[in-house]
Design a protein around this nucleic acid. Structure first.
Lengths: 196, 196
DNA sequence: TCGTTCAGATCGAACGTTCGTTCGATAATA
DNA sequence: TATTATCGAACGAACGTTCGATCTGAACGA
């Protein structure tokens, strides 16, 4: 057999947990939304929190990819552009990832330390390394803390993604096209940290 | 009488709701934490959600202040510095505000539209106006969308505040001093949007 | 090819717990 | 004495989990 209900539960959990958090969704709603019986959650995941952890794990697996960008080496400015593009692409392929991310950042569950925190750490640390690299090359100003610059960059991009939907509704300002956004953020950030 | 339990409940609610969200806290825990009986929540606020709304309202009242910065006029660059300083100060005086802010942004409750959304709108709109002003003066580059620049700035600062605690634990990088942070972010952002 | 077998998949009722709210009683103040 | 503040027990509803029953489909022997 194919464990179709398992897949359906992961899908429903991904959407619902992202929308309302771990405590905002009941097992009954989860299983109803997955067209499964209420006992399937415990059967496959050992309980509600097990499903949450499974969803988290699946969503955050793709964070490993940041290291590819760094390993390929090259110009720090190009790597920063790579990071922005990668983040936007990730946002398109994992539409609920950012919600989990910020949701866990503000209201961390016990799985934060195991799954989310290492994922964040990897990204910020890699970004800071790229920036420190640019500093050593004399390409970036050295009077800025590399980790501060890394969180500034991550914050710019993540916050924009998060507020895109709200922005559209609030300001009638259609969220800028990807390419336009990349150009604006690259301009602001890289011009801001360049030396000279 | 003095309605001491009411105040205690607001205080407990501010901390607990920020830490775990609306659905992460029970009325029993709320009242226990406020040394009040379980019925006080309904007595004063008409129920758990009423307390949540009261806390939200109180926390977001200070967002009106952003307009003061703009009204005073002056150099757009100085106003941007004013915004960063104001945000940091707000973070010190309202230690739980940012958590509510991002928590509501990711998992909006029915009170989002009434309380949080207008507060965010005010800040981003005002920032965008300040930046557009700098553009008209020829001080800032005009090939960047003002709202994109505004969300970039807000994102940089807010994200840093949010991740400060996590950053400290994760990277051994003690969160930078306020003045140092202001200098770094000002340098990155204002240099990034300046004309020429 | 057909019936049997059996482990995995799925179900829904039932259980004990916890939830948020209500309500009558009591305490404190004016 | 009237009013406000506070309490804690009680209620029905909803929660997450458990469990025995049923269904499904592949494997196997005849």
């Amino acid at each position: 057999m194919k464990a179709e209900r398992r897949i359906a539960l992961i899908e429903a959990g991904t959407r619902l947990f992202a929308e309302r958090g771990l405590n905002g969704v009941s097992v009954r709603e989860l299983s109803r939304s997955a067209d499964a019986s209420i006992s399937m959650v415990s059967y496959y995941f050992g309980g509600k929190e097990g499903l949450y952890a499974a969803v988290l794990e699946e969503q955050f697996a793709c964070f490993d990819q940041i290291e590819e960008i760094r390993k390929q080496g090259g110009d720090p400015l190009a790597m920063i552009e790579g990071y922005i593009r990668w983040t936007i692409r990730r946002h398109r392929t994992h539409p609920y990832l950012l919600r989990f991310y910020t949701s866990e950042l503000t209201n961390p569950t016990p799985y934060f330390a195991k799954i989310v925190s290492p994922a964040i750490e990897k990204v910020i640390r890699t970004l800071a390394e790229i920036i420190a690299d640019g500093m050593r090359r004399g390409q970036f100003r050295t009077n800025i803390h590399a980790v501060s610059a890394a969180t500034a960059l991550a914050g710019m991009v993540s916050y924009h993604m998060l507020s895109t939907l709200a922005t559209q509704a609030l300001f009638g300002h259609a969220p800028v096209e990807d390419e336009s956004l990349i150009r604006d953020y690259l301009a602001i950030f890289t011009r801001g940290i360049q030396a000279g």
